[in-house]
């Protein structure tokens, strides 16, 4: 399984600014990967191009090896006419019911299922939104800031559990948290803007699968590489 982008050029209509110019990168193999870059560099726009919500002016997005690519972002809301438990129940395929129960526990949402989406905190909203994507059938999931407003400890626990439960899936994790990306991701594509010669630089992350695996000096090295590339 791979996600290959070649020579992507894109700019929003009505603006003179080009967001990507001949941008090329490739995510190979299942696992936890990342798109990183400073605010406004085009991470979310790129995610929208990858899932077909936006069309690139030029270039190729090769998703032939992928059956289902989903894009989750942190601005989403669940419909307000039912409780989140009823909503999750309704949208979970029968064969993923066990997975759903497990994820609810890992995500710390068991006590909130009777509530409406509007009654949740921001962190709870983001968690429940990510959870409903995880119970779908997908090969690739783009996770755009979906763990924003969640405390560090719970974020780490969630990421480790996702990695353990979905070993055969490809995740593209978009976040501004350098430590998190350096710690848990394999391939980190750092976006640098169209004015730079090389618009995307690949950094290898630590790809930790549990919280004990972190080696302080190699983590610092990876973080330094990411920051230098950005």
């Amino acid at each position: 399984m791979f996600l290959d982008c070649r020579d992507l050029t894109f700019g929003y209509q009505g603006t003179t600014k080009t967001l990507f110019k001949n941008l090329s990168f490739k995510f190979e193999n299942p696992g936890f990967h990342s798109l990183f870059g400073s605010s406004g560099v085009g991470k979310s726009s790129l995610a929208r191009i990858l899932c077909g919500l936006l069309r690139a002016d030029k270039g190729v997005v090769d998703t032939d090896s992928i059956d289902s690519l989903l894009y989750a972002h942190n601005l989403e809301r669940l419909p307000g006419w039912s409780s989140i438990g009823a909503h999750i129940e309704r949208i979970t395929p029968i064969h993923n019911q066990d997975k759903k129960e497990l994820l609810i526990r890992h995500f710390g949402l068991s006590t909130h299922l009777g509530k409406r989406f509007s009654q949740l905190s921001l962190g709870q909203k983001n968690r429940i939104n990510l959870l409903r994507y995880l119970v779908q059938d997908f090969n690739v999931l783009i996770v755009d800031e979906c763990l924003a407003n969640v405390d560090e400890k719970l974020r780490a626990r969630i990421l480790i559990n996702i990695k353990a439960m979905f070993k055969d899936r490809l995740f593209i994790y978009i976040s501004h948290n350098v430590i998190e990306i350096a710690s848990y991701c394999q391939q980190i594509w750092v976006l640098r803007g169209p004015e730079r010669d090389q618009q995307a630089v690949l950094v290898r992350g630590q790809d930790c699968r549990d919280q004990k695996c972190l080696d302080r000096s190699s983590l610092q090295q990876t973080m330094l590489e990411i920051m230098n590339a950005a």
Binding site: L70, A72, E76, R77, L78, I91, N129, Y133
Partner: peptide
């Protein structure tokens, strides 16, 4: 869009 996105993404 913030509510409909999920249903569109999952083909529902």
């Amino acid at each position: 869009t913030e509510v409909e996105h999920f249903y569109q993404q999952t083909g529902r």
